[in-house]
């Protein structure tokens, strides 16, 4: 469970997040929605310790994450799949996965096996350089690399960006089934609200750094105002 309270983050004079508070429950998918520049990526980067908050607290269960180093936060079991996926193109698929498994005390071979079962295409291309993969494959690799460490929290930054609708649907399905089969807490940052709301349990809508809605995914979906003004979904 991730609890965020009164979080304010600024870049110089610009406030990227203002008094953001919400809870991401264990075993649930929390979607963070909003337009470009709403502060979604900043939120994830702050949770991961890549950005220092100005005020506020972030807790993993009962442990404060503020002022911790990024690598220590990762070692607490928070997997962050960054925007643009962040796979290392010069590494092979398997090297990327080995890097992901490095810090966790898991059996490497078993972990690789599990990921190749979850994403069969990665198993086929294990010796290929990640730079040679397609966009969807890279996204899978990035997720597999985070999952192989058996995280308790998964932060996903725009996983559907640049993917074909069919691939996106498949990906969302994978996220959903992962969440159901384990006690994984997922924070899913998306611009693509429709597909995110379809699988999310809870949704937080950000607008210029402020929380404008914090409700169940169903309620957010049903709210026409939100849909129209903040999510850009017009029927």
């Amino acid at each position: 469970m991730i609890t965020i309270e009164d979080l304010t983050v600024s870049f110089g004079a610009v406030q990227a997040l203002r008094n953001v508070s919400f809870v991401a429950e264990t075993g649930k998918i929390t979607a963070v929605l909003g337009a470009n520049g709403a502060g979604k990526t900043t939120l994830l980067r702050t949770i991961s310790g890549l950005k220092e908050p100005k005020t506020g607290t972030i807790r993993l269960d009962d442990q404060s994450l503020v002022h911790k180093r990024t690598e220590d936060i990762a070692r607490l079991g928070i997997g962050h799949v960054p925007e643009g996926r962040g796979v290392i193109g010069e590494f092979t698929v398997e090297e990327n996965l080995r890097l992901g498994a490095m810090m966790a005390r898991v059996n490497l071979l078993q972990g690789l096996q599990e990921q190749y079962e979850l994403f069969p295409v990665l198993g086929e291309r294990r010796k290929q350089h990640a730079a040679k993969l397609s966009g969807g494959e890279r996204q899978m690799l990035a997720m597999a690399r985070a999952l192989i460490a058996k995280p308790s929290v998964l932060l996903l930054d725009e996983p559907s960006l640049g993917l074909a609708p069919l691939v996106t649907a498949q990906l969302m399905h994978t996220i959903q089934s992962l969440c159901e089969s384990s006690d994984l807490t997922v924070i899913l940052v998306e611009q693509n609200a429709t597909s995110a709301l379809r699988i999310a349990h809870h949704a937080v809508v950000l607008h210029v750094g402020k929380v404008v809605a914090n409700d169940t995914a169903a309620n957010v979906s049903a709210n026409d105002n939100l849909r129209q003004y903040y999510l850009g979904l017009v029927e």
Binding site: L50, A74, P82, I88, F91, L99, M102
Partner: peptide, 22 residues
């Protein structure tokens, strides 16, 4: 393993940190 981490932190320091590489 060390070499893999050394290469990773040279190529992509931020991503490496997100994966727990010191």
């Amino acid at each position: 393993k060390l070499g893999l981490q050394l290469r990773a932190s040279a190529l992509a320091p931020e991503v490496s940190r997100l994966l727990g590489v010191r």
